[in-house]
Amino acid sequence: MGQPGPGRQQRIAALQSAAQRDLEQIRRILEDITGFNSLWSGNVTVEPLSVDYLGVKQWSCDIGIREDVLQHREQRWTTMIHESLHPVSNGLQRDSYSANQGWEEGIVEQAQRILRNRIFDRLNISARTSQLRDIDRRNLYNDFVSELETLRTRLGIESERFYLELLSAPLAERSQFVKTIGDNRWVGDALDEWHQVFEQSDKVLRRVL
């Protein structure tokens, strides 16, 4: 792997073509499940091993995925679904992203975990649970998922509903959206306690030191 030449070019072309086909299918299923339109450009690039990420949604709305990720069944599907969720996320723009990274990446990552089995069923894909668990366990975005789960369980909102509602809220307003749910629910000491929990999680989600 990694050697130049016609064989390598053919292999990259095959990876690109298969990813393109599967991303189109994921897009249709996500639009169906969420009811949101995807802004994905329809372009996917196979990224070389020299890039330091698994996949990325570019600001042009192209998707890039590293070539070795595209050759590992579970990493390929989890990365494709994760990157396909960014273009259905409301208000993902440069400024809102840099100020609210966890409110985007944590939500997209947890939505990926919640929705993937339904996508696998629809596409008749078999994935190894042990591999999926290992991929989940090693993801840095667990920092964000953990804080979102703290807030969700405190609010007592069902998982899928919580993450899909947040995906549909503009990214710049997600933090306030969640805070307001608690503000409208509690008074007195319970409200103070909510504010403490919220502020602690919000700091992590915004990466405020």
Partner: peptide, 30 residues
Amino acid sequence: HEWLQQHPDDLTVLSAGEGLAMMESALVNK
């Protein structure tokens, strides 16, 4: 990048790479 030369399968660092790439691109554009 140097870390990944030594640990190419480190999914934790690779998973953080996405956010770093998006952040860099956002700030360069700004």
